[in-house]
Amino acid sequence: MKSDKQQFDFCQVGKQMPYRTPDGYFEQSAQQLKDLVVAKPKYNYSSRWWYGVAATLLLACAVYGLTAYISYKSDSRVVPVYSQNADNAGEWNDFAESDLFLDNMDW
């Protein structure tokens, strides 16, 4: 069924537009764009790469530091023999002399 409704003829306009640009715009713009895009992404690309490296190094340092700290804390609970002073040495001697196991030993 053919519609009787009036339609606008698009061929009257075609692909024409009322929009204009300043003279020589595309030549100037092309150079500006080339300068902009070649400079800008290069910076971003390298900075992103460095951010990755810096973050990895920081994480590695943090893990190493934490491990070293835990290890130091657990070691410091045992008092090394060489660190005992003269007062402690007396106590240790008394303890050794009163020790049943040592007394019963057949030297």
């Binding site: 306009v13 024409q16 009322p18 929009y19 640009t21």
Partner: peptide
């Protein structure tokens, strides 16, 4: 600024 206002039909179309 950069619009050609000379053609009324083109303006109406846009």
């Amino acid at each position: 600024e950069y619009v050609d206002t000379g053609d009324a039909l083109l303006l109406l179309f846009q």
